[in-house]
């Protein structure tokens, strides 16, 4: 009998038993404490999808290739207007808004037309050499890019995009009013901004992205436009003048 007790008291059993008992007690107390005193209240928020539209070159190439070279008004042998192609490209949107903002140092007439893409030379077209797809679009596949890089395309003016200026001083004045001065310049007072540096804003909303949206299947797209700059009737300037233009696009839905 003594031997048995000796064995049990010597063994690991009492230690294990004690340890187990303690662990169980602690767990019970801690769990009980946690349950009885932690409460939560929560709400859900939906995240808006970010704008996935870009301004690119005419065939979804890097926008760096969109250029407006120096315009020489004095050369009367050349036509008095020129068209410059660009595109709105990106993930599919149903409709989008196109905005043109420009300063008014030179009283050019700006118009935007949808571009018609031709594979052979056509009158009044601008030559355009297809470049590599923009790396920004690495994860997008454009079904519309049927011509490989190096193809020569001929772009002409299609339907005019009928937008309107939002802040002209009066219709046709080609001068911006103070209406959007704060949006453009923030706290910077109007007294420091020359009248022609105040940009004119032109917009058109509800532009459909693809001709037939129901069969398009919400795939990435690009829509090619041409910006027409017209200096008909302008006399020669002795001074160089520079204007800044911004083209931007925003999804409507």
């Amino acid at each position: 009998m003594k031997n048995k007790i000796t064995k049990v008291m010597h063994g690991k059993l009492p230690w294990i038993a004690a340890l187990l008992l303690v662990i169980i007690s602690i767990t019970c107390y801690q769990t009980y404490a946690w349950f009885s005193h932690q409460k939560k209240i929560a709400e859900l928020q939906k995240v808006k999808e970010p704008n996935q539209l870009f301004i690119s070159a005419a065939y979804a190439e890097d926008v760096i290739y969109f250029t407006i070279p120096k315009i020489d008004v004095s050369d009367t042998t050349k036509p008095t207007k020129e068209i410059y192609p660009f595109a709105v490209a990106g993930e599919y949107v149903n409709e989008f808004t196109l905005q043109l903002a420009h300063t008014t140092n030179v009283p050019f007439t700006y118009k935007i037309y949808e571009a018609n893409i031709n594979t052979s030379a056509v009158q009044n077209s601008v030559e355009y050499k297809v470049g590599e797809k923009w790396t920004e679009f690495a994860t997008l596949t454009f079904d519309q890019r049927t011509h490989p890089a190096g193809t020569m395309l001929y772009l002409t003016r299609g339907t005019e995009v009928q937008g309107q200026y939002l802040n002209e001083t009066s219709s046709g004045s080609k001068l911006a009013s103070n209406k959007y001065h704060e949006e453009t310049f923030g706290e910077y007072s109007k007294t420091y901004v020359q009248d022609n540096a105040e940009p004119l804003y032109w917009q058109k909303s509800g532009i459909t992205s693809v001709p037939d949206s129901s069969s398009w299947g919400a795939k990435p797209f690009f829509k090619t436009f041409v910006l027409e700059i017209d200096w008909t009737g302008l006399t020669e300037y002795n001074n160089k003048e520079t204007d800044v233009i911004y083209i931007s696009a925003y999804r409507d839905n």
């Binding site: 409460k39 939560k40 929560a42 859900l44 928020q45 995240v47």
Partner: peptide, 9 residues
């Protein structure tokens, strides 16, 4: 979607 959860102890 995201959830703002307020825990109180």
């Amino acid at each position: 979607y995201f959830m703002v959860e307020v825990n109180a102890t």
